[in-house]
């Protein structure tokens, strides 16, 4: 099978890869590029654990073909911290104990960052609906919502 050559930008870096037509962006990130921060919880867009942004839009990378990202800009959880400085959301997730097992955490952080870029002052209800596509089975969401709201407040003050 002929592989497809793709040039793209991931977390600000120019990246080239080869993939097969049916490979998803999630497959490419995890299996070809070693970016295993995005997780596969369902493969059908129902859990949000593979969330990344594609040209600044929040998407499930399991529902994007690798071949589609030619010339696009992708950000993943690996691009969220600035060197050793954590993003305020990452810091607040730690402070609020907003993760238990941590498998949903990368996807939720990517999704929450997209929320705060669009809406710096979300209500609790807006936050809950925005994150409804990110399943968490451990926390009951309470501390996640608190962490996002707290990070939003801090970022507004910054």
């Amino acid at each position: 099978m002929t592989q497809i050559h793709v040039s793209t930008t991931i977390n600000g870096d120019a990246v080239e890869f080869l993939c097969e037509a049916q490979e998803t962006l999630l497959d490419v990130l995890r299996d070809r590029l070693g970016l295993t921060g995005a997780k596969e919880g369902c493969g059908t867009g129902d859990c949000g654990a593979c969330s990344v942004t594609l040209d600044k839009r929040l998407v499930c990378s399991c529902l994007v073909l690798g071949a589609e990202v030619e010339g696009r800009e992708i950000t993943t959880i690996e691009g969220m911290a600035d060197g050793e400085i954590l993003h305020p959301l990452q810091q607040k997730f730690l402070e609020h104990a907003a993760l238990q097992c941590g498998i949903c955490t990368p996807g939720i952080l990517v999704a929450a960052k997209a929320l705060l870029e669009k809406n710096p002052d979300p209500t609790e209800t807006e936050t809950r609906y925005w994150l409804a596509g990110n399943l968490c089975r451990c926390t009951g969401y309470d501390k996640i919502i608190r962490a996002v709201m707290d990070a939003a407040e801090q970022m507004r003050g910054a």
Binding site: G45, G48, S51, L54, R57, L58, V59, C60, L63, V64, A111, A114, L115, W130, L131, A132, G133, N134
Partner: peptide, 9 residues
């Protein structure tokens, strides 16, 4: 239709 992520696509 679907989540925020699905809405993106």
């Amino acid at each position: 239709i679907g989540s925020t992520q699905i809405q993106g696509r």
